[in-house]
C-alpha cells in the first residue's frame, strides 16, 4: 500500500493557510543535503516534505500533526505550528 493511498483514507479539514514554513532555504541547500541527506523527506509519515531540486516543497495539507519534524530537522529549520482551531487531521479511530 502506497503512502498516497494511506493518506487518502484520512479525513482532513483543510485550511487555506499553511501551518508549516521552512525558515531558510540556505541550510537545506548548502548543508543538509551533504551532511544529513535531508531526513525530513524520509521520516515524515505523511510525505509533507519533498526536495524539488532547489528547495523543500511543503505539502502542509498532508500533515497528520505527529510533530516529529519538531525534533527531526537537524537545523531546527522547520517552523511547524499547530493548525488553527478545528483545522487539520481528524482521526476517526485514533
Amino acid at each position: 500500500m502506497k503512502i498516497e493511498e494511506k493518506l487518502f483514507l484520512l479525513t482532513y479539514k483543510h485550511d487555506k493557510q499553511t501551518h508549516i514554513t521552512i525558515r531558510s532555504n540556505e541550510p537545506c541547500v548548502n548543508q543538509c543535503g551533504a551532511q544529513w541527506g535531508r531526513p525530513c523527506t524520509t521520516f515524515c509519515p505523511a510525505n509533507v516534505y519533498n526536495w524539488d531540486g532547489e528547495k523543500i516543497a511543503v505539502s502542509y495539507e498532508n500533515c497528520v500533526e505527529c510533530t516529529s519534524c519538531l525534533t527531526g530537522c537537524p537545523y531546527q529549520n522547520i517552523d511547524w505550528r499547530l493548525p488553527r482551531g478545528g483545522f487539520g487531521v481528524q482521526y476517526r479511530n485514533g
Binding site: M1, K6, L7, L9, L10, P45, A46, V64, C66, T67, S68, L70, T71, Y91, R92, N93, G94
Partner: peptide, 9 residues
C-alpha cells in the same frame, strides 16, 4: 481492510 492510517510522536 485498512480503514485508517495514523502517526504520532
Amino acid at each position: 481492510q485498512v480503514v485508517e492510517y495514523l502517526a504520532h510522536a
